[in-house]
């Protein structure tokens, strides 16, 4: 903790030193040098791909290169923390996700930043749904089957996710609390063990990001039961939403990404980034590239993003209170 305070003090000192110089160059010349975009996950994942798509388009729009740097660790909070502690001049930013924006904080985990105070979200980079899948040999054919069996024998159904308090775990607990059922959570650390156990029937179902099982769904090697988004997706129009399949009106759980900068960044820079990215989201190329990896683009201004964060925070806070997700 001491180290944290110290590094934050150094950060603040540096910020004070540099911020004197920042307003001079202001927004009309921004950006006049290379921008660093931190992706807080290992290369190759969907967040990384999404970040790279946006970074490339931003680079073209600004005429300055936007360099993606992968800084994995602590479920995304390490990289986000690094960006939020950097000099607030608009040249260091990070892609944050549901976990690093709020879930870690709601669970009371120790973070290198305070999402409520330090986080300055300037753009919405798209959302992706999750999907409830079973193995092909499973006797559970619909989401209603899962709910029905869990009502009869609480805890008898086991589900896998990418880890404790991962979006898949949260989404399933949300479902369970709405349906009034109890299921057994089996956390995994990687896709391979999860998929092997799912396909061989060791676990009953799993809730994972659509992008990560897209190929399995297309190949027919797993059976999709329901999509966690509010609407069905065009690639699999026959797969119902959780709200439809489980008769749980109002259910919606998505994975989303935001572009975040440190607090204290000049407002003009925030606005310029917001407008540029919204502009990019309107472009067909960017939209389609994002869609290919399962992300739906959406334009939001900064006030809308703040409202969005607030709504999501309330929703997940409630899920955490009502279910048994906790850090003991």
């Amino acid at each position: 903790m001491k180290l944290n305070i110290l590094s934050r003090m150094i950060g603040l000192a540096a910020a004070g030193f540099f911020s004197a110089a920042v307003p001079v160059q202001a927004a009309d010349t921004y950006p006049d040098r290379t921008i660093q975009m931190i992706v807080p996950y290992a290369p190759g994942g969907t967040t990384d791909l999404a970040g790279r798509i946006v970074a490339k388009a931003m680079g073209a729009a600004f005429g300055q290169s936007v360099v993606v740097e992968n800084k994995p660790g602590a479920a995304g909070s390490l990289g986000v923390g690094q960006a939020l502690r950097s000099v607030p001049d608009g040249y260091t930013m990070a892609v944050s996700g549901v976990s690093s924006t709020m879930i870690h904080d709601l669970l009371g985990r120790e973070l290198p930043y305070d999402p409520k105070k330090d986080l300055n979200a300037v753009a919405y980079l798209g959302s992706s749904g999750m999907v409830v899948i079973t193995g092909n040999n499973s006797g559970l054919k619909t989401l209603a089957d899962i709910i029905e069996r869990s009502k009869k024998e609480p805890g008898s159904i086991s589900f896998g996710s990418a880890g404790n308090a991962s979006p898949g775990h949260m989404a399933t607990e949300y479902l369970a609390s709405m349906a009034g059922i109890k299921m057994t959570h089996v956390p995994y650390t990687g896709d391979s063990a999860l998929m092997t156990d799912l396909m061989s029937g060791r676990i009953d179902f799993a809730t994972v990001g659509i992008a990560s099982v897209f190929s399995h769904m297309k190949a027919g090697s797993v059976r999709p039961l329901a999509i966690t988004s509010a609407e069905r997706i065009s690639t699999f129009p026959d797969v119902p939403t959780v709200a439809e399949a489980g008769d749980l009106a109002g259910y919606e759980a998505d994975i989303w990404n935001l572009l975040v900068l440190p607090k204290g960044t000049p407002a003009a820079v925030d606005q310029k980034l917001n407008q540029t990215i919204n502009q990019l989201m309107r472009e067909k190329g960017v939209r389609e590239s994002l869609l290919e990896i399962g992300f739906t683009a959406r334009e939001m201004d900064i006030a809308e993003i703040q409202n969005f964060i607030q709504t999501e925070r309330e929703k997940w806070g409630k899920v955490i209170r009502e279910s048994n997700i906790n850090v003991e």
């Binding site: 994995p72 660790g73 479920a75 120790e110 850090v327």
Partner: peptide, 20 residues
């Protein structure tokens, strides 16, 4: 590192880099 089952961070001593 982080306990997979409960999500508790073990022996990280407040250093985020040690949480994995």
């Amino acid at each position: 590192g982080t306990d997979i089952t409960s999500g508790v961070t073990r022996f990280a001593f407040g250093i985020p880099e040690l949480s994995d």
